[in-house]
């Protein structure tokens, strides 16, 4: 039907209060403005249309046009995204986004087209840090013997185990109760998620060691993308780029807000000597490069950027 506006269905798994969702609202606004209302975006938050992996498949199948996922599930297709999970790969936020928004990041986004998933832009998802319920982590040695919940991927497991902890992969939905009941001693995440998951209610300590900075990625299915005109493609890309800049502001505000909430709830915020943690996790990258030798040059390129 050529009469009404064309609607782009965008599904993701975050709640509507999340700063990355706000970034996508910017994308929606910008695209409608650029296309003068001929291209509309309908956003489905809260995992209404499926988990991250399932949404990627729905893009490939062609029933959903776009999604936002963490880089982690993308590494099942594109091993380059694995690299982003290496602990202390990025020196700081400036370094991270100069890499991601430069030629290296762009070339990784383009690699997805081969898998019918075209990357549009990166969103800031901050850095992940440890939080614990009973024992504070001040140095890497404090991790010894602590059961830390991690996402079910090898890099995260290796990292926690190498630092001396006991990595415990567990479903995210079971985590709140697991911390509370002591099935695990702690977990790791960025400040906005630490607060939105309510885990700050049951964790006394938040150790800002910032061990990994995996970005979020906005993607569009090539099944949908290929149907767009050249002009529409430019609008979509520009809208994505603009939303990425706005989103970084939302993220910063959200981190400040979350830290305030956590502090007021009585969570002790610990600023540790990050280099000790970086030192202790060094062998993770060595192990990774040994397993994926073809990734070595990319790792070095990023480090020398």
């Amino acid at each position: 039907n050529t009469e009404g506006p064309e609607v782009l269905y965008l599904g993701h798994t975050l709640p509507q209060t999340h700063p990355v969702h706000k970034g996508m609202l910017e994308f929606q606004k910008a695209l409608e403005k650029k296309s003068k209302g001929t291209l509309k975006v309908k956003i489905f938050p809260d995992g209404q249309l499926g988990s991250e992996r399932e949404l990627l498949e729905l893009l490939q199948i062609g029933s959903v046009a776009a999604t936002k996922v963490s880089a982690a599930p993308l590494s099942n297709f594109i091993p380059e995204y694995n690299v982003m999970g290496i602990p202390y790969l990025f020196r700081n936020k400036e370094h991270q986004f100069s890499v991601l928004e430069g030629p290296i990041g762009k070339s990784i986004l383009e690699k997805g087209s081969k898998f019918w998933l075209r990357g549009l832009c990166y969103y800031d998802a901050g850095s992940r840090s440890f939080y614990t319920s009973k024992k504070a982590i001040r140095t890497p040695e404090d991790l010894n013997g602590l059961k830390i919940r991690v996402q079910n991927n090898q890099m995260a497991i290796n990292m926690v185990n190498t630092m001396g902890g006991d990595a415990t992969p567990l479903a995210y939905g079971e985590l709140y109760t697991a911390i509370q009941q002591g099935v695990v001693d702690g977990a790791e995440n960025n400040p906005p998620s630490f607060v939105s998951s309510n885990h700050y209610e049951i964790s006394k300590y938040y150790t800002l060691d910032e061990h990994s900075s995996v970005p979020d990625v906005l993607l569009i299915g090539t099944k949908y993308w290929d149907k767009l005109s050249e002009e529409q493609k430019i609008w979509v890309q520009e809208a994505a780029d603009e939303s990425a800049q706005a989103q970084k502001r939302f993220w910063k505000e959200s981190v400040e807000e979350s830290m305030k909430v956590a502090k007021e709830a009585g969570v002790e915020i610990i600023i540790p000597e990050k280099s000790l943690f970086a030192e202790k996790s060094k062998s993770v990258v060595e192990k990774f490069v040994k397993e994926y030798p073809e990734m070595e040059s990319l790792v070095n390129q990023i480090k020398n950027n």
């Binding site: 499926g50 062609g62 029933s63 099944k223």
Partner: peptide, 10 residues
């Protein structure tokens, strides 16, 4: 096709 495949996936 996308419709049927989506139901199969769900």
């Amino acid at each position: 096709m996308p419709g049927l495949t989506t139901i199969a996936q769900r």
